[in-house]
Nucleic acid binder design. Sequence first.
DNA 1: CGGGTTCTGGACAGGTCAGTTCAGAACCGG
DNA 2: CCGGTTCTGAACTGACCTGTCCAGAACCCG
Lengths: 191, 191
Amino acid sequence: MARPKEFDPEHAVDAAMDVFWVGGYAATSTNDLCEGTGLARSSLYNTYKSKRDLYEQALRRYGERTRTEQAELLERHGPVREVIRDFLLRAVDAQLADPARRGCLALNAAVELGDADPAVAELTRDDFDTIVATMQALIERGQATGELGPGDARAKARLVHAALTGIHVVGRVAEDRTRLTHIVDAMVDSL
Amino acid sequence: MARPKEFDPEHAVDAAMDVFWVGGYAATSTNDLCEGTGLARSSLYNTYKSKRDLYEQALRRYGERTRTEQAELLERHGPVREVIRDFLLRAVDAQLADPARRGCLALNAAVELGDADPAVAELTRDDFDTIVATMQALIERGQATGELGPGDARAKARLVHAALTGIHVVGRVAEDRTRLTHIVDAMVDSL
DNA sequence: CGGGTTCTGGACAGGTCAGTTCAGAACCGG
DNA sequence: CCGGTTCTGAACTGACCTGTCCAGAACCCG
């Protein structure tokens, strides 16, 4: 029918995701996106409506990806406390292993654009709610077996999520591991 | 000696702080700052070196201000659990009362610029450390009286700080109170 | 009131921004 | 190999960006 694209649009979203992830939304220029994706300006605007649109797609893809990863980690078998500890420690290690300390793209988006962009707010809110729901199910499992004490499982799940945000935020400016592992230790101890 | 400034440079920093607080660093233009402070371009650049310099001063002032406020709240007498609950609830109420959901300026700065700006990273890290130290002292007081159980007080303090970051981050996109009070409830229960 | 200093408004400069346009290249089916 | 469609590179647009500059106004002190 016609000349095919010389690139994979989905792969380009992945590349754009990385670019936004490092620099945030406002500080990332369309030129940065061209370089990061390898696309020419016209190809980029021919495929995506705007910088804003591409950002939303990247955010959506990030949500799908992390949803899967987190579900895998949280639906493991074994002692609930250990599952949660491993889950949080993985965030710690990821943060410290990343030279750019990018943290969580959804969190970064919520903080940078939360109040100014309803679509972004909704997307990140959904991301947050999903992990809270998964965490709640895990905690309820621990309560059913008697491993964990009683109490509002949803509230506890939200506290664990807050601990995760703490890791991502503090990890953005902290270079030592203790500032982050303390959060994990205190969180797991208090379940 | 000469003509005096028609404005108070300190008050202007306060005004600039509010402007940055709403829009973040990158998305705030020098024009926005002129409008927000009421200064003309030349006065602004005559008084502060650059947009970046003004941002740093605003951030520093924010740190001083919140340090004082937080110390007042956390050094109150009474049951430690109640002091911490009131402290966290105040953050919840402030967040929900603010139509722009600005959250915490230091946190926003850490997330937006953390990895790209060493000076900002250091400033926010200091802010975080200060509140953690104050919180640790409070928790140790509770442990001394037997009100709180044993355990690493600094680690617990860091978890409380993580809970606070959770309130600020989630509060930026959540409109209902429960998402935030759950964090407070679970946090205070688990001390 | 006058000399010296500082402040202020507005115009200006050069660069970068997001997004558009278009001519020509690349591809496909027939 | 050709007609029709789509993609791509590069130039372009107009707006906005940060920061500078300067002429004149405002002020203080003697």
